[in-house]
């Protein structure tokens, strides 16, 4: 288990705390407010322990501080289910508001049920994603929640048992996801789920092509996507699409070792096309 040294003052300095409190009371000043931007920077940097030290433990009505503390506690290793349930309660309370902070809290509340707890409750997570999307359909966090809801529907919920029905249920969310990058991510996942559940190739390819049209798929997945469309189109007998994507791959990724296979595939396409025309390859 990871251990990060907790930054605490030397024990014998604790005896000065009452004096500090007395002096601050006499001077009429409240304890300094937590440095929120620095704490968020620490959380973004995977330094949850450091962030929690900066945020302090004093009771506060500041919702931003409450959100920061609960968020940091999700990554303050070792995390117990008790810690997670306390964080979930805070998120649930903060989610009652009517601002972006409330949307972020509602999103995190669903995430706790979906992937943080040792025994996830996917039905509860799905319910919370749906509630968030109904309350604030245009909020980014609601939109992101819909993508996560699709994943839960595709792979985690017990029903429906029929893969095609699962896919149809998740695909129905597409019309509610309006942010292009999230629309792309959902299209891509619908395509991948179609492959996983061995669905007909045309429907898989349609989702993958839709994801590619939006563009910007990050990392190696973007490269894989071009090959997938090329190869699956070849298997579906759509040689024109297959050729276009394989040729694009050779242009965009000329140094990848898979180029050898792609060139072989282009020769196969040429042979198929020649055969279709009644000629010889």
């Amino acid at each position: 288990m990871l251990t990060v040294p907790r930054v605490t003052p030397l024990p014998y300095l604790r005896c000065l705390y009452p004096l500090i409190l007395l002096l601050s009371a006499l001077s009429g000043r409240a304890a300094p407010a937590p440095d929120l931007p620095t704490a968020w920077n620490d959380i973004a940097d995977s330094k949850a322990k450091l962030a929690l030290v900066k945020l302090g433990r004093a009771d506060t009505s500041d919702r931003a501080v409450q959100l920061a503390r609960a968020t940091a506690s999700l990554d303050d290793q070792p995390v117990s289910d008790g810690d997670l349930r306390r964080a979930e309660a805070t998120f649930a309370q903060l989610a009652q508001g009517h601002d972006e902070l409330a949307e972020q809290a509602a999103y995190l509340q669903a995430r706790v049920w979906q992937i943080h707890l040792a025994q996830p409750d996917y039905a509860r997570a799905a319910e919370l994603y749906r509630a968030l999307a109904e309350r604030n359909p245009r909020s980014h966090w609601a939109q992101l929640g819909l993508v996560k809801l699709a994943l839960v529907q595709l792979y985690a919920l017990p029903d429906p048992a029929d893969p095609a029905a699962r896919l149809a249920g998740a695909a129905a969310l597409l019309s509610r996801v309006t942010e292009p990058t999230l629309q792309r991510d959902l299209q891509l996942q619908l395509g991948q789920a179609g492959i996983f559940y061995k669905q007909p190739l045309p429907s898989i390819i349609a989702h993958l092509v839709a994801a590619d049209r939006i563009g910007g798929t990050p990392g190696a997945a973007g490269e894989d996507l071009i090959l997938q469309i090329g190869e699956l189109s070849l298997r579906a007998g759509d040689y024109a699409t297959s050729r276009a994507y394989f040729e694009r791959y050779l242009r965009d990724y000329e140094v990848n070792p898979r180029c050898f296979t792609v060139k072989e595939k282009l020769q196969q396409i040429a042979a198929h096309e020649a055969a279709a025309k009644g000629g010889r390859p």
Binding site: L36, P37, W40, N41, I43, A44, D45, S46, A48, A64, L67, A68, T71, A72, L74, D75, V79, Q104, Y107, L108, R111, I115, H116
Partner: peptide
Amino acid sequence: TLITLRAQDARMIAQARL
């Protein structure tokens, strides 16, 4: 992978707040 995914939730919200 779950270890990484869980940690990303906190980091994503932090990036959003910043």
